[in-house]
Nucleic acid binder design. Structure first.
Lengths: 139, 139
DNA sequence: GTTGTTGCAAAGAATTTGCAACATA
DNA sequence: TATGTTGCAAATTCTTTGCAACAAC
């Protein structure tokens, strides 16, 4: 398969490939943990890749709208993480904020059956598991 | 079964039964929709039951801590709703904010199996379905 | 009477918006 | 060059805190 080029991913999302957006998206690549706009801004600044806080907010929001990121409410903040295209669920480590994606046929079946039983038209669902990942639990 | 008296419920939660807290908890009873602190404050004020906004925030927070309320992130806000004692999931109507509780053995089993397969120590999980309830869909 | 509670005003914190300078296509 | 983007400062919005008056037990 072809390497996913950051600038192409941005253009696919209908966004111009600016230095700032490329920086943000690259910073998200290969990261297992979800991160907030504030934290990411701090990291970029520390790494000498200055991007305005406003731009970080706007970029994360655009990428999430485009379906490239999942958003996780954490305290009063939104944390973001790159995600796959298809529907999935999450295993969220509360110690390191690592997020693993999982697919779950049984959950999809459950959603369908509950909804049809109740005359509920489903627009979405979320099934996330919180806890401590094996790495953190080992400590 | 005994009627649940509001003041008793408050005392069970370790809170003094003040007029304000009784008012808030009573306003939550029999309500199918989740409501935010701001909205509830406005409603109480309109109903001539003045309770300070700060107190509404504090009361909702205490009740949620005591396990009497479920919290739902909605846009940038927290919405609350009375909930049952035992573990459950939700069917959330995005049109009227109504929340129905559902139990789901299959979800519990799924959580256990995923966690054990991955060496993940579970502290909690959440499985909510979003959509439009039968009442709203009929409109 | 003690101790927890209220509510105002002020502080805090996350996020959004206006707008002029600027970069991308 | 035309249009989208940036980033600062300022504004918004939700939520929390300090503190003196007050109410529950």
């Amino acid at each position: 398969m072809a390497e996913t080029v950051t600038s192409d991913a941005l253009r696919d999302a209908g966004l111009r490939a600016t230095r700032q957006r490329t920086t943000v998206l690259d910073a998200l690549r290969g990261r297992a943990e979800a991160i907030t706009a504030q934290d990411l801004h701090g990291e970029l600044r520390a790494a000498g890749e200055p991007v305005g806080l406003t731009t970080v907010y706007r970029t994360l929001s655009s990428l999430a709208d485009a379906g490239l990121l999942d958003a996780f409410p954490r305290d009063g903040e939104q944390a973001f993480r790159l995600c796959s295209d298809d529907h999935h669920h999450h295993l969220i480590c509360e110690a390191c904020n690592r997020v693993d994606e999982i697919t779950a046929e049984e959950v999809e079946r459950w959603v369908d059956s509950v909804a049809s039983r109740r005359g509920f038209r489903v627009t979405g669902h979320r099934a996330d598991v919180f806890g401590v990942c094996s790495d953190c639990g080992r400590a």
